[in-house]
């Protein structure tokens, strides 16, 4: 394992018990992801890719095998330690945005800092800074329902970035968005990746996977294909080339 390795997974297994039947969802997955990679995880539903993402995100615990995140054996951590790992080392972006509906965009972005016990003034400052970074500085006081889908997903990304995690896990982030908005979002992910953040993204769309630099295919709980992308598509260039207005400058 080199110093650059962020994720090291060995023979990772996950089984679900449904009554008396044991369903193997993940049947021994091994791989390593280096810092700064942009990985797309693909596969049909039931292939185990979501299970794999949940394990990577420390939302679930493996039935067997081991998982090292930045050198720490998170497979053996207790629940409180896992919560701390989710808080500081991982940013989540979900298909359904998963924002708290009754609080403003700014407060949604602050949420992880509340659990990290950061004082309020510092929370506001950092949350505003992250919202500006995703181009939503003027929408800080809006409730999620007052924002478009693309804007909500940007808020979710700002929330994922708040603790400067080394890893962002995105589960079908463009699944609820139209193609133009999806393109804007992928441009944002590519910019974040260019800034050094490791991104693991689950998708079933080849168009989306084309923006990654490595694609992993799952089937029946195993990795069936793992290859680099020779020339990833450039979302920002595609946006500039289209007739649609250019997105705001995303990285300051």
């Amino acid at each position: 394992m080199t110093a650059e390795t962020l994720i090291e997974v060995g023979d990772l297994r996950r089984e679900y018990r449904l009554g008396e039947v044991t369903v193997p969802a993940l049947q021994g997955v091994s791989l390593s992801i280096r810092r700064g990679e942009f990985v797309a995880v693909m596969g049909p539903s039931g292939s185990g890719k979501s299970t794999f993402m949940n394990l990577l995100g420390c939302l679930d615990r493996p039935s067997g095998g081991r998982y090292l995140l930045a050198g720490e054996d998170v497979g053996r951590c207790d629940a409180d330690r896992l919560a701390a790992v989710r808080n500081r080392s991982i940013g989540f972006v979900f298909q359904s945005f998963n924002l708290l509906p009754r609080v403003t965009a700014l407060e949604n972005v602050e949420l992880p800092l509340i659990y990290a016990r950061v004082p309020a003034a510092e929370r506001h400052r950092r949350a505003r800074e992250r919202l500006a970074r995703v181009g939503l500085a003027e929408r800080a006081g809006h409730l999620p329902r007052q924002l478009s889908g693309g804007q909500q997903q940007r808020v979710a990304i700002a929330r994922a970035l708040i603790n400067d995690p080394p890893l962002i896990l995105a589960d079908e982030p463009t699944g609820a968005l139209d193609s133009h908005t999806s393109l804007e979002l992928m441009a944002l992910f590519q910019e974040l990746n260019a800034a050094g953040i490791t991104i693991v993204l689950v998708t079933h769309e080849h168009d989306v996977a084309a923006f990654a630099r490595r694609v992993i295919h799952f089937r029946d709980g195993r990795i069936v294909e793992d290859h680099p992308v020779q020339r990833p598509a450039r979302a920002a260039e595609m946006l500039a080339g289209s007739s649609a207005p250019a997105p705001p400058s995303l990285i300051t």
């Binding site: 995100g57 939302l59 629940a79 409180d80 919560a83 701390a84 989710r86 808080n87 500081r88 989540f92 998963n98 924002l99 708290l100 949420l111 992880p112 659990y115 990290a116 929330r159």
Partner: peptide, 16 residues
Amino acid sequence: TREIGIRLAVGARSRD
């Protein structure tokens, strides 16, 4: 329940 899930995902401990 979903709100609880979001809070847990971003780092809330069960005692929070």
